[in-house]
Amino acid sequence: MKLYVPHVGHMEGLEDLLSGSEDIYAVYMAGTPDYVGTGRTNLSAPGLEEIREQTEYAHDKGVKMEIVLNSSCMGGQHLTPQGFNKINWYFDRLNDIGIDSITIAEPYFVEMLTKDYDMEVVVSVLSFVDSPQKAEFYEELGADTIVVDPVVNRDFTRLEAIKDSVSCDLKLLVNEGCLYQCPFRYAHFNFFSHANGPGPKLNVLDDYYYYKCLSLRINDPQQLIKSPWIRPEDLKDYEHITDTFKIGGRTHFTNWILNNVRAYTDRSYDGNLMDLLDCPRDIRDLFFIPNKELEGSLNQWKKCSKVCSKCGYCKRLTEKIVQVYSLDGMQQTLQPLNNTDGTI
């Protein structure tokens, strides 16, 4: 199994990460946002010398280095002469450093990197590859690896069709805690791409999408069950699709990342599933989902038509196993989710 692991972007974090596990195949981190943004908040923005130092350290440990430049919107800057030259210069520097792979979402960059560089070209989840047709298009553009849109993580017919339609490698994101079929997904990642990319910087009042998404999951906990995560115990069901898996969460602390590495390496986790999900702490600290009680749920999802109003399985499962943390005086206790409408 090839496990791609998030890294916050500074040397101290990388040292802690690689000294904490020998089961890491590759680490990935954001690049310098002055050139190309990313679809996530940057907790650290390493310069080229920092990237060089960390890449050399990872390579000394036998670990590959991947840079994430998966802005879903460049505002057209990359198609201007000035923007192209600036980005091309940055790609040159990363190539000189010896970066193993670059994750991008912009189709133009796929062709650009394929034609001029030796780095592996990885198509991001923010390219939303959820069908064999999209996978074929990106492979024709030059993709070496495609990170499949997690929205189809439980649709094995679709996954198998994608697998059969291309010869490039596939990678699956295992612990995304986002809403299934999220209506804010495109707009939110476009917002992040501008907020965490080249200027001009945005002067926004608040992140509407973040708080709206948060409230939907708090008020309707079945959305947590519907999220397209893959349990450590269920990796075996995906081995005919790929042997390459990605842990999301490059904004989290090293101990959280290493806990995920252990769980997915051991293919077992006896605890709260929320501990593993890449989702806001506001939700992780509110709900308890006993991971072991989810055994067998994948068999139901494999045959599910994804018409929730007719199925109701996730709703029933939520009411059966999900618990809520509450404050009883000064002590935090767990309470069952016994109501029928899913609200707290």
Rank of each mutant, 00 (worst) to 15 (best):
M1D: 08
M1A: 12
P6E: 00
V8R: 15
M11C: 02
G13V: 03
S21G: 12
E22K: 15
V27P: 12
D34M: 00
S44F: 02
A45S: 15
L48S: 06
E49T: 14
E53D: 11
K64I: 01
K64D: 05
M65S: 14
V68E: 04
L69P: 13
G83R: 12
G83K: 14
R93V: 14
N95K: 03
N95D: 14
D96H: 09
I97H: 04
I97W: 01
I99H: 04
D100S: 14
A105L: 01
E111F: 00
L113C: 07
L113S: 11
K115S: 13
F128C: 15
L141K: 13
R154A: 06
T157K: 10
R158D: 04
E160Y: 04
I162N: 11
V174H: 06
Y180V: 10
P183D: 02
F184V: 11
H188C: 09
G199W: 00
L205C: 06
Y208H: 14
Y210E: 13
Y211E: 13
C213F: 01
L214W: 01
S215Y: 03
R217E: 09
Q223G: 04
I225W: 01
P228I: 02
W229T: 11
I230N: 06
E233D: 07
G248P: 10
G249V: 04
V261C: 08
A263E: 08
R267A: 02
D275R: 07
L276K: 12
F288K: 09
I289R: 05
K292E: 08
G296S: 03
G296H: 04
S297W: 01
L298S: 06
K310V: 11
Q331P: 02
Q335D: 08
I344R: 13
